[in-house]
Computed example of a mutant assay.
Amino acid sequence: MSTYVLIHGAWHSGAAWDRVVPLLSAAGHRVLAPTLTGYGDRIHLLSPEVGLDTHIDDVVRLLDDQDNVVLVGHSYAGMVITGTANRTPDKIARLVFLDAMVPHNGESAVDVMPATQHLIDRAAQTDTPWRLPPMSRSFGVTEPADLAWLDTMLSDQPVRCLQQPVALDNPAAHAIPRTHIHCTTDAPPRRPVPPQDEVWELPTGHDCMITMPFELTELLLKVH
């Protein structure tokens, strides 16, 4: 039995994994899908001070009582799992970057995906320059029922999350095996993946946990 820890991306909440969690559990694994500070049912904690370090702290605390973890990060959460691995490499059996940002040491989300800067610039012209509203039509979900469900879980994204750099200077973190799952529909340009890393693809949009939960689960079960 492995422990899967599934970390949602920007604007989302732990509810994004609701179609995947029961499938992994049915296969005999322990599954945790937390909601990070400032999202979903923790939206009351949203503030200008919430940043990448806040979310790394969330996951590090969660891993305190865990071992042999398959740590999965979707989208922005690639930043979060990278920072978590740097701090607690002994807890993690494998990192899975699910259509995710894959930073180098000292990079922010804006460094990894420069296009996010225009969102920050646009927010700077508003009364709440520290928060970015969700863009529900930008996640590759097309079915009306799925879009309606997605809208129920989306909330604003703190700008600081995209601006804070991540540390990846612990040699033990570099030794953790990595898997990358790329969603190929309307995919943006990606950085080259190191030859030692596993790479799989799903023929769907960015929110594959919503659009292809069974296929995603099959891939996740291969990495435990």
Rank of each mutant, 00 (worst) to 15 (best):
R190V: 02
D156G: 07
R122C: 01
D169L: 12
L63F: 06
H118V: 11
M135D: 03
L63G: 07
K91N: 10
T84P: 04
L150I: 06
N105Y: 11
T185R: 10
V80R: 15
A100P: 05
P188H: 04
H180D: 06
V96S: 10
D127N: 10
L98A: 12
V141P: 08
H118I: 09
D186I: 00
D57T: 10
S138D: 15
A148R: 13
D57Y: 07
A175T: 04
H180Y: 15
I176E: 07
H182M: 15
T152L: 08
V60K: 14
A123T: 02
V159S: 04
T82G: 12
V112A: 06
I92F: 03
H55Q: 10
D121K: 02
D151V: 00
R190Y: 05
Q163F: 04
T82K: 15
P114N: 05
A100T: 03
P165W: 11
D127K: 12
L147Y: 03
L154N: 01
I176F: 10
C183R: 06
W149F: 14
V166K: 01
T84Q: 11
Q157C: 03
D65W: 13
H118L: 06
G83E: 09
D90L: 08
A77Y: 14
D151G: 01
V159N: 09
F97R: 10
I81Q: 15
D169N: 14
S155T: 12
R61Y: 11
Q163L: 14
D64Y: 09
A115R: 15
P103R: 01
H118M: 15
T179R: 14
P158N: 04
D90M: 07
L71D: 04
E143V: 01
A124V: 01
D186V: 00
A93M: 14
Q125S: 02
A148P: 01
I181C: 08
T84L: 09
L71S: 03
G73C: 06
L98E: 11
D146P: 06
R122F: 00
P89A: 01
Q164D: 00
G83A: 09
H74F: 13
T82R: 11
R137V: 13
P188N: 02
V110F: 13
V159C: 12
L162W: 10
E143Y: 04
T185D: 11
R178Y: 02
S138N: 12
L71G: 02
